[in-house]
């Protein structure tokens, strides 16, 4: 049998708040299979973003283990970690904050291709155009500054940046929350297409169970840093067992219970 793409066990991160020490993430374990979407849901402050940052090694855990693609991901450092980052990408909530304010679309997409030596300098403009087309944008957007394009376009550029290095897992932290409804639907469809074609796994963070039911296979519901319940997304949303799960379902009025 093969091991899962990502497995997280006993993950713990504590922060000091005044004199008290609180566990933002407390003994959390889960796994993601290749090509699968796992959603993390939970109220504000339940530790979703902290888990995303831990998985991406943007912050270091106090305890726990992370295995990714068969390797001890926490044991990596320096150049080895930087090269593995090609396989594990992230899309942030605020697409404006996620890019260097001075960057152009082309530069944003050039960076991963250059850093990981994916394409030669001459070849990169063509690759950038192909990436833009892959996420439903026109290549003439390339010379534009990041702040000159719309929020929806920006989030597509963020997705293009994430898939530039052919990752096996992308973490989305509230990546569609800032978008209006019609744009959100388009982006979710794009993500489903990408997953079907490239077999990319998603760790999809959202507090919106409507979005989660549209995209996730399984869901983990967090409460104050611990896992309240987890399971098949449809099953959990149809019949939540935990108090926090029930509250989240009740707070989502028009739950679309059909998967596209």
């Amino acid at each position: 049998m093969s091991s899962p793409l990502l497995s997280v066990s006993g993950l713990t991160k504590r922060y000091r708040r005044g004199v008290k020490i609180i566990a933002a993430v407390d003994d959390v374990s889960f796994h993601i299979e290749t090509g699968e979407t796992l959603a993390l849901a939970g109220p504000s402050g339940s530790g979703k973003s902290t888990i995303a940052r831990l998985v991406l090694r943007l912050v270091e855990p106090d305890a726990g283990r992370i295995r990714f693609e068969g390797e001890d991901f926490l044991a990596l450092g320096g150049a080895a970690l930087r090269s593995r980052r090609a396989r594990l990408q992230m899309v942030f909530q605020d697409p404006l904050a996620a890019f260097n304010p001075r960057a152009t679309v082309a530069r944003v997409l050039d960076d991963p291709l250059r850093v990981h030596g994916i394409a030669s300098r001459q070849e990169r403009p063509r690759r950038i155009a192909a990436l833009l087309e892959r996420v439903g944008l026109t290549p003439d957007l390339a010379p534009r500054a990041i702040h000159e394009i719309s929020g929806g376009q920006r989030q597509r550029v963020a997705i293009a940046r994430a898939i530039a290095t052919k990752p096996s897992l992308i973490v989305f932290d509230e990546a569609v929350s800032a978008l209006d409804l019609s744009v959100r639907g388009q982006i979710l469809r794009l993500l489903l297409d990408l997953q079907r074609e490239e077999r990319i796994a998603y760790l999809f963070i959202s507090h919106d169970l409507g979005v989660i039911s549209a995209i996730a296979h399984r869901v983990v519901i967090l409460d104050a840093g611990t896992i309240a319940e987890s399971g098949n997304a449809r099953a959990v949303i149809d019949a939540p067992q935990s108090a926090i799960g029930k509250a989240l379902v009740a707070a989502t009025p028009r739950l679309n219970r059909t998967r596209p």
Binding site: R53, L56, L58, R82, S83, R85, A86, L88, Q89, M90, F92, D94, A97, A98, F99, N100, P101, R102, D111, P112, V115, H116, R161, T165
Partner: peptide, 26 residues
């Protein structure tokens, strides 16, 4: 502390490039 620096790390950029090409100009 801003997201775009986290983004540059996720991209796999070298810390010196992050410091002098991403952060310093800003």
């Amino acid at each position: 502390e801003r997201d775009f620096v986290a983004g540059a790390r996720v991209t796999g950029m070298h810390p010196l490039e992050i410091a002098f090409r991403e952060i310093l100009p800003n």
